[in-house]
């Protein structure tokens, strides 16, 4: 009797001690994932804001980013740059990956969407699926159907506090995502081109009459979205260490969910939506079941479509960039 009470006490005590630690741990894991989702979600939401089009091939740009990260860093390993200076090698890997992915994003718009600008809404959707299938198979054929390994292991070194750990890589991902989002926000709010993007999103004809090159702004939108997705791709590849040609599909759907959650077309919404999705996913994996890790996004998508289709920050159907 006496021993029994003590035992329960003990359990409660350890639970109470462990609970905040576990929560904090999930917060860190969730922010890491969420930052990445947010970066991809921004591409969906920016394009939607400008063209009212869901670029369903956007996830493939993220996948290309992951592969190109592996290819360029592998190349720098072979030529010995990584052993001379790893930060320098990583910098050039990131730079080249972003440039190539942006070129893909630019070309995607010109090939798959621009000719269909005035077509019925279903046409660009079908075109997007076509591009998506094409890119997946192109990567599968050129890179193989098996997992590719990220050439650099960053290991588990990091900060440790009680039972909570944050690897340096996690910290880097959180910081980089945060900085990119902040820069994008400032770009859109403060710069001449960012304001033009908002003007184009609000009224394309008037933007053209004001002297804005509307097609140019649309291209810039795709280029920025692709650059952010490329960054997300590299970070995920280094985080999980493995990539495959189909990772763009599931990540794309999750990021799309994040964009809808925050209010599609709304830029801060995509950031908030991405982070919420990351947090829910890691909390779900820790407290409910990690088997259903990928299902939480779909549950959120269904729930948000049922109760608030405009999303958390979306005010009405008109609200855009």
């Amino acid at each position: 009797m006496h021993a029994g009470t003590l035992c329960i006490h003990d359990n409660i005590l350890t639970f109470l001690l462990k609970f905040p630690a576990m929560l904090l741990q999930q917060l860190i894991n969730g922010l890491t994932l969420g930052g990445v989702y947010a970066l991809i979600a921004l591409g969906y939401t920016m394009v939607y804001g400008i063209l009212e089009l869901i670029n369903f091939a956007h996830g493939e740009i993220y996948m290309l980013g992951a592969y190109l990260g592996i290819i360029f860093l592998g190349l720098f390993t072979v030529i010995g740059l990584t052993s001379v200076s790893l930060p320098l090698a990583l910098f050039f890997t990131v730079l080249l990956t972003i440039v190539v992915c942006s070129a893909y994003g630019f070309a995607m718009e010109k090939v798959a969407y621009k000719p269909l600008r005035n077509a019925p809404r279903l046409s660009p959707l079908i075109s997007a699926i076509g591009i998506s299938i094409f890119l997946q198979n192109y990567v599968m054929l050129t890179q193989g159907a098996t997992d590719q390994v990220f050439p650099q292991r960053f290991g588990d070194s990091g900060l440790q506090f009680l039972n909570v750990s944050m690897t340096y890589l996690q910290a880097l991902i959180i910081i980089v995502s945060g900085l990119l989002m902040l820069s994008l926000h400032l770009f859109i709010q403060k710069t001449r081109m960012g304001k033009a993007m908002r003007a184009v999103a609000q009224d394309k004809t008037m933007a053209a009459l004001a002297g804005i090159n509307v097609n140019g702004i649309i291209s810039v939108t795709f280029i920025i979205g692709a650059g952010l997705a490329a960054m997300a791709g590299i970070m995920v590849a280094s985080y999980y260490g493995l990539v495959n040609y189909y990772i763009g599909y599931i990540a794309g759907i999750k990021a799309f969910t994040a964009a809808v959650l925050g209010g599609i077309g709304n830029i801060p919404g995509a950031m908030v939506g991405g982070i919420i999705l990351g947090l829910v996913e890691s909390a779900g994996a820790a407290y409910i079941s990690s088997e259903y890790k990928d299902a939480y996004a779909f549950i959120i998508l269904i729930v948000i479509l049922l109760i608030k289709p405009a999303g958390i920050l979306g005010k009405n159907t008109e609200e855009k960039v």
């Binding site: 304001k195 033009a196 908002r198 609000q202 009224d203 855009k320």
Partner: peptide
């Protein structure tokens, strides 16, 4: 442009 400020409209 409804969701640009007056000065942003002029800037455009």
């Amino acid at each position: 442009f409804p969701r640009l400020t007056v000065s942003e409209n002029l800037e455009m």
